[in-house]
Simulated assay, not measured.
Amino acid sequence: MKVLDLQCPDGHRFEGWFASADDFESQRSRKLVECPMCGATDVSRVPSAPRLNLSGATEASATPASQQAAQWQGRALRALREVFEKTENVGDRFAEEARRMHYNEAPSRNIRGVASAADAQALVEEGIDVMPLPVPAALKGSLQ
């Protein structure tokens, strides 16, 4: 199994696991490899350090920026997964459903959905707490 460091045109770095380098190239050419953050299929390999397990070796205390970015992306994906698991998707009925809950016309629950900026502002002006959560299109389906 080959673990390759990959990057999309937007600079998102991520790992891909493939049977071989040829397997990666085959999947990439068929647009089967996509960035987990933005969904771009124009991904490329980036240089990576070999992973060596040496007895007595310790991890360096400073984490390179690329590793920090990958760690941040992982935390963001875990947080989004938790939001998706603990909320009901009401789609484009978000503003309507938030109002119904606020005015006790519907049971109170955790919801998520889509609202225009004007609808979100109107909800806030009515005293209804909302929180915008931009979700990349690639993550709106199944979070892997």
Rank of each mutant, 00 (worst) to 15 (best):
A95S: 15
G113Q: 02
P36K: 09
P36A: 09
L54R: 13
S66W: 02
F14Q: 01
N89F: 05
F84Y: 08
G113Y: 00
Q67E: 09
G113H: 00
Q67W: 04
R30A: 11
A62P: 00
Q68T: 12
A62Y: 00
E82G: 03
A106L: 13
L54G: 10
N89W: 02
E96C: 00
M131G: 10
R45N: 04
P64H: 04
L123S: 11
A19E: 15
A95L: 06
A57K: 07
E25H: 05
A60I: 06
G39Y: 06
R81K: 12
L133F: 01
S108E: 05
E97T: 13
S48P: 05
V33Y: 09
S116W: 05
R109T: 09
S108H: 03
R93D: 12
V124W: 03
L52R: 14
A76I: 04
M101P: 06
M101L: 07
A95D: 12
S20D: 14
R109E: 06
R51C: 10
M37K: 15
R28A: 12
G74S: 11
A69M: 13
A79K: 00
F18G: 15
D129R: 13
A76P: 03
M101R: 07
S55Q: 15
A49S: 12
F18M: 14
R99E: 14
A21Y: 02
T87H: 01
A70H: 08
E82Q: 06
H102F: 09
S20G: 12
V130A: 13
S20N: 07
A122V: 10
I128Y: 07
E25G: 01
T58P: 01
L80K: 00
S61E: 13
A115G: 04
S55R: 11
F84G: 00
E59R: 14
R93C: 02
Q68W: 05
V33N: 11
T41G: 08
S108D: 05
A98Y: 01
A120D: 11
E105W: 02
T87F: 00
S29Y: 03
G113S: 02
Y103L: 08
K86L: 12
Q73P: 01
T87P: 02
R93G: 03
A122Y: 03
S48Y: 12
G39E: 11
A118T: 10
A65L: 11
L80M: 04
N104E: 07
V83S: 03
E125H: 11
A40G: 07
F84E: 00
F94D: 02
N53E: 15
T63C: 06
S108P: 03
S20Q: 10
R99K: 12
I111K: 06
G91M: 01
R75L: 07
E85T: 02
P132G: 00
G16L: 04
G127W: 08
P64N: 04
R81G: 01
G56D: 13
V33I: 12
Q67S: 14
T41D: 09
D22A: 13
K31P: 02
L133G: 01
L123A: 10
D42S: 10
K86P: 01
E105I: 02
P107L: 05
I111E: 09
E59S: 14
T58S: 13
A57N: 04
T87N: 03
V46G: 08
Q27T: 07
V33M: 14
R109F: 02
G127A: 14
R45P: 05
R28F: 07
S61R: 08
L77W: 00
A60G: 15
A117H: 13
D92M: 03
Q73W: 04
L123M: 11
P50Q: 14
L77Q: 07
P107K: 03
Q68H: 02
